[in-house]
Amino acid sequence: MKVKKELSSVFLVFILCTIAIASSIFLIVNNKIKIISFETQFYVLRGMIFLYLFAIVTLFFRLLFYTYIIKLGKSIRFKMMTKVFHQPKIEGKYKDHYFQVHYCSRDGDSPSFIRTYVKMIFKKKMKFDNKKLSKIKGKHLGNPILCVKHIIRSDKNYLLVKTSPYIFEKNKLFDMMNYLIEISHKYRKE
């Protein structure tokens, strides 16, 4: 529902922008605005059209990406958890464990390149050997493993595997989830 609301408000804004630009073109072409010089009107209109087209192209690719992730999520029975303009997260159950796949891109030291975070979410308190987890690096079945961490915050408790770049193949996602299950058994502290 939230996504539908968000999308409908975006489309409403676009319809309003289209009407505004179309009416500006009409007024400028018919020389109806006489207070401002034609040159100024032309520059402003050109700038508006540029921003309008830029926004349309960005939105189009965003929606394309978003719907692709929704379809991917549906194919593995995962559900989309984020809105259109946020970095997509899909969540669901796999082999009796809860997982979340987060397609992200962040600024900073080195993590700004596109990445896939696969998270195994726990409802109970868990303890892992963080020293051993931090040593896990390299490749797993062709997927580069950038790091493995156990994240505990007030509302979060999950085992995280960072890979790069985005993973869109079902089998690769299942590989990563199986890998996380394997790690959770191997490095768990009792």
């Binding site: 960005t58 303009f85 970095q87 397609y103 891109s105 700004s112 390149f113």
Partner: peptide
């Protein structure tokens, strides 16, 4: 913010 939100920091 748009760059980060859209996941296209590059």
């Amino acid at each position: 913010t748009m760059r980060t939100a859209l996941g296209i920091n590059f």
